[in-house]
């Protein structure tokens, strides 16, 4: 009885491995049909490879750009409404000097503002985890600060701090502060109580418990917040530059709009996109370095595509 079940199990396992549904176990000599150990087809192997992560979106982008180019070439739209992608690309690199020059203050504002947000947000999140008083005092303020439309505050910053870098930096910090602080808070509270009990039974100090348990447990969540934050940081910088600044990609863009210079507007948008994308990828790379360990593995595979 148990023998039959076992052999059946072995059979179905074999069938799964060779990808041949309910086919009866082939006697080895009967061959002639499929190859004995069929490998996954080329297409399937490609789709599961890391290369596909790059190729698939690139193909999609290529299709979109091709359609765009076709629309422009057909003459259905005026050039000042929608310049052709080729022309935009030409502008991006043709006027590279100008764009590079104007990018510097924008990028600096993004970096400094974002760093400021993270440096302020993390300690606040930590304080909120360890002190109920701090949590209760700060939480409502955080919500209110998030609900206030930050774009509406931007003119105020100009009045207070002028047209230089400072209002931009503050705008960037303000706009990406909230996701970082909220996700960090969630992260720091995600540590399993049992893990904390465990290190406590080892005689861990609060400091040790934080760095050995709470911090690593919080990192994935912190990175989730940081990724949202970094994309918002670009928005913050451009908004601040729209409202009033002496230099920057946002200034270039708003000036070009005034001249109906769509090509420059598009090229500025494209460069801003590139900056945002590069920053996001950099954060993801940092995440991969700081979060070692396999979070995939057995259960990951077993949970399939659900």
């Amino acid at each position: 009885m148990s023998g039959t079940t076992q052999s059946k199990q072995a059979q179905s396992k074999h069938a799964r491995r060779t990808g041949r549904g309910a086919a009866p176990a082939n006697p080895p000599a009967s061959g002639g049909g499929a190859a004995p150990a069929r490998r996954p087809s080329g297409a399937k192997r490609f789709l599961e490879s890391r290369l596909a992560d790059w190729v698939l979106p690139l193909v999609l982008v290529a299709i979109i750009v091709a359609v765009w180019q076709a629309v422009c070439a057909s003459g259905a739209v005026e050039e000042y409404v929608l310049p052709a992608p080729g022309d935009v690309l030409g502008k991006m690199f043709g006027d590279f000097g100008t764009f590079a020059d104007q990018s510097v203050p924008t990028i600096v504002a993004i970096f400094v503002g974002f760093a400021l947000a993270v440096v302020v947000a993390l300690p606040i999140a930590v304080a909120m985890v360890y002190s109920a008083i701090v949590r209760r005092a700060i939480y409502p303020l955080l919500i209110i600060a998030q609900v206030v439309p930050k774009v509406a505050i931007a003119p105020l910053f100009i009045i207070w701090f002028g047209f230089g870098q400072l209002p931009k930096v503050l705008m960037v910090a303000l706009i990406c502060f909230f996701p970082v602080v909220i996700d960090s808070l969630v992260g720091f509270r995600a540590a399993r109580p049992e893990s904390l009990m465990l290190v406590r039974s080892m005689g861990a100090s609060r400091w040790q418990a934080f760095w050995k348990v709470r911090w690593p447990w919080a990192l994935p969540s912190i990175f989730a917040g940081v990724k949202v934050g970094i994309t918002l940081a670009v928005v913050g910088a451009v908004v601040a530059e729209f409202v009033g600044a002496d230099k920057g990609l946002g200034v270039l863009l708003i000036t070009a709009r005034g001249d109906m210079d769509s090509l420059t507007v598009f090229a500025s948008i494209a460069w801003l996109t590139v900056i945002g994308f590069v920053l996001f990828v950099a954060v993801e790379a940092l995440e991969r370095i700081l979060l070692p360990g396999k979070r995939g593995g057995r259960s990951h595979e077993a949970s399939g595509s659900l």
Partner: peptide, 15 residues
């Protein structure tokens, strides 16, 4: 602390 604790779940740190 002159003690070792084994919990019901192994409580290994996943990273």
């Amino acid at each position: 602390t002159d003690l070792g604790f084994v919990f019901q779940g192994a409580e290994l740190l996943p990273w």
